Amino acid sequence: MPDQKKSAAGAHGRPGSNGSAATDSDASTDGGYNAGMAVFSYIIGGIIVWSLIGWGLDYLWGTRWIVLAGALLGAVGGFYLSHMHGLTSSRKNADGRHAPSAPSQDGIDNAK
């Protein structure tokens, strides 16, 4: 006998319905968090990788400043990559206009 709850959830496309994909509205609720984590990882990853390259060049050439230049280059490069992937663009509403980023006038926060 099929489970009524699972079949009803599957008909509406909700997550947890026997492996069906989430709807667009369900998938977009944490899009800002995922984009923020991607930007963070691009920038931190760039800083780490280019700092290590700068540290290696400092060791080989006997200098002390290339590691700092590498860290700066990694941060700028990580931000550039995240910008080119469209992760630093402003949020949009469903109708395509910019989403408000300030609190509402009545003080009620509608964040999920």
Rank of each mutant, 00 (worst) to 15 (best):
A27M: 15
L57C: 03
A38C: 03
H85C: 04
L81E: 06
K6L: 12
F40G: 05
K92V: 04
S89G: 15
I43Q: 08
I48F: 15
S51Q: 00
P103T: 04
V76K: 04
A35I: 01
L60A: 15
K112F: 12
S82G: 15
G45V: 02
D58L: 04
A69W: 02
G36T: 02
K112Y: 11
A69S: 04
S90V: 06
G13W: 03
F40H: 09
M37Y: 15
A69K: 00
H83K: 15
G74I: 04
A71E: 14
I108T: 13
S90D: 07
D3M: 12
G77L: 14
A75S: 11
P103L: 14
W61D: 08
N110R: 15
S89Y: 00
I44W: 02
G96Y: 02
H85R: 13
I66A: 03
A75W: 10
L87T: 00
P2I: 15
W50E: 07
W55E: 05
I44S: 15
K112N: 08
V67S: 00
K5W: 11
T63S: 15
A75F: 13
G54H: 01
I44T: 12
Q105F: 05
H83E: 13
G78C: 06
W65E: 08
M1W: 13
S51C: 05
A22W: 09
A11I: 01
A99W: 07
D26N: 08
N34M: 09
G70L: 01
A38I: 04
I108D: 07
G46L: 00
A35K: 11
N34P: 03
M84V: 12
K6W: 04
I44L: 10
D24Q: 13
N110S: 06
D30L: 09
G74C: 08
A99C: 04
Q4L: 14
G32F: 10
Y59G: 03
I44E: 02
G31V: 07
L73T: 11
G70D: 02
G78H: 00
W65D: 09
S82M: 06
M1F: 03
F40R: 13
G10M: 12
A71W: 03
S17V: 09
G32Q: 06
